[in-house]
Design a binder for these strands. Structure first.
Length: 402
DNA sequence: CGAGATTCATGTGAAGTATACCTTTAGGCTTAA
DNA sequence: AAGCCTAAAGGTATACTTCACATGAATCTCGTA
């Protein structure tokens, strides 16, 4: 007991490495966004009519992850919201991430989530979809207002729910008497619009904007700016920024990742009672990020997903490094695990879908190949570093009581 | 030797089933007049 | 008789199963040079 008190006291006395950690967190919206001036201006220009209570055009944003789509959108919309508040304009802005499982990955759930954002209490299941639709419309249309809905990673939603849903939302305005809705769609997939009904396409992307990835120099600029605010002097070692930038540039210029690397490296250093950190610590951070990403996902996923994942890890262990593994093998191992936990195994059909979903999450890389005479299967490789696997495996085994 | 047929192991689509949850409705009970 | 509660009925979304058919290159077959 005494020790704990001491621990907390010395913790408080200890000078934190961070001066302001918030600026490195992923939901932080900075004061200004370097290298994205054009996009900010364009979007601001498109949305500006909202302040005169005229409906802005729908916008569609394309660009790889971490290229600033979300930050720019959030930045511009929050500014608009500020002004609207000042002048008492009835403008609502809703941000919805369509990728989140069990939150907005079907038409029903998306509408339900939108309704919830307006403080409505809607059930998670049971109602007909058009009932939810009506509830939502009725509530919105009660008085005159302007609503801007941001649908992040909308491609994921369409892939699962079909493009009929897009048709429905683009038609919403014609059903409204008082309120008006503008849509901002955000997509990582540049080609995604190609297989969408042309009518929907033209109404959804009245304006289109592409976000190019950041290059290494720009990433360094961003990192430097933020790390100056985030860390005290002399905390960030020589070359750290450059290395973070290089890592992220390697992955198509993902700024979010670069910032995350920096933050996690700092957190690790702090936990180890270090006063600073340097290049070597970045690798540790990289590994921790990957591990946390998967662990987080693992915890939110149902048991069947966990078992499937465990089966994949198990096989990848016994197979030579780098060699792919196949669906059939996974299913066999998976069934064994099911027996051990006394859980009814799913059909191979379903497991096949689960594997496809794990692929979408990025934990594994799977692609369908034909092995000629020896049939057709998914060729699966791990999408995460080998070094993180034992750790994740242990967590899985523990969580499943194996 | 090469064109076409065959083959395997699984991908993939459509339709059906089970489960959990929602609203509506009808019946039964209580209560107040 | 009016009001309230409960349980059954009828409906939906979602996760999963069942059934059936699609895939596509390695391999096989067989006619031909």
């Amino acid at each position: 007991m005494v020790e704990l008190v001491q621990f907390f006291q010395s913790y408080l006395e200890k000078q934190s490495l961070f001066r302001n950690k918030k600026v490195l967190q992923s939901n932080y919206t900075p004061e200004k966004i370097p290298y994205r001036n054009d996009q900010v201006k364009t979007i601001a220009g498109i949305l500006a009519p909202a302040l005169r209570m005229e409906k802005p055009s729908n916008i569609f944003l394309f660009g790889k992850t971490g290229s600033g789509k979300t930050v720019v959108t959030r930045y511009v919309t929050s500014q608009i919201l500020n002004i609207a508040k000042e002048k008492n304009l009835p403008i609502n802005i809703i941000y919805l991430n369509c990728k989140l499982k069990r939150v907005a990955d079907t038409e029903y759930r998306m509408l339900a989530q939108l309704a919830r954002e307006f403080g409505l209490n809607v059930p998670a299941t049971g109602l007909p979809t058009d009932e939810i639709y009506k509830i939502f419309l009725r509530h919105i249309d009660s008085d005159k207002k302007l609503i801007i809905i941001i649908l992040d990673e909308i491609d994921q939603l369409i892939k699962k729910a079909g493009d009929e849903l897009l048709y429905n939302i683009t038609r919403i305005n014609s059903e409204l008497k008082n309120a008006e809705i503008s849509l901002i769609g955000i997509s990582n997939d540049l080609l995604f619009m190609e297989n969408v009904d042309p009518r929907v396409k033209s109404s959804l992307s009245e304006e289109e904007l592409v976000f190019p990835p950041y290059d290494a120099i720009q990433l360094q600029g961003i990192l430097r700016e933020r790390s100056n605010i985030a860390f005290g002097d002399g905390v960030v070692g020589e070359g750290v920024i450059e290395k973070c930038a290089a890592y992220a540039a390697r992955e198509h210029g993902d700024a979010r990742r670069a910032l995350e690397l920096l933050r996690v490296a700092g957190e690790i250093a702090e936990r180890n009672n270090k006063q600073s950190f340097d290049i070597e610590d970045i690798d540790g951070a990289e590994e921790k990020i990957e591990r946390d990403k998967v662990l987080d996902l693992v915890h939110t996923q149902p048991k069947q997903f966990q078992l499937t994942l465990l089966a994949i890890f198990e096989i990848s262990n016994s197979v030579d490094d780098g060699n792919p593994i196949f669906t059939g093998d996974i299913y066999e191992v998976y069934k064994d695990f099911c027996k051990k936990v006394a859980l009814k195994p799913l059909t191979q059909r379903r497991v096949s879908d689960i594997i496809a979903e794990l692929d979408m999450c990025g934990i594994i890389n799977a692609r369908v190949i034909s092995k000629g005479r020896y049939g057709r299967t998914r060729e699966i490789r791990l999408g995460i570093p080998q070094s993180t696997i034992p750790n994740i495996k242990n967590v899985l085994i523990e969580g499943l009581n194996l």
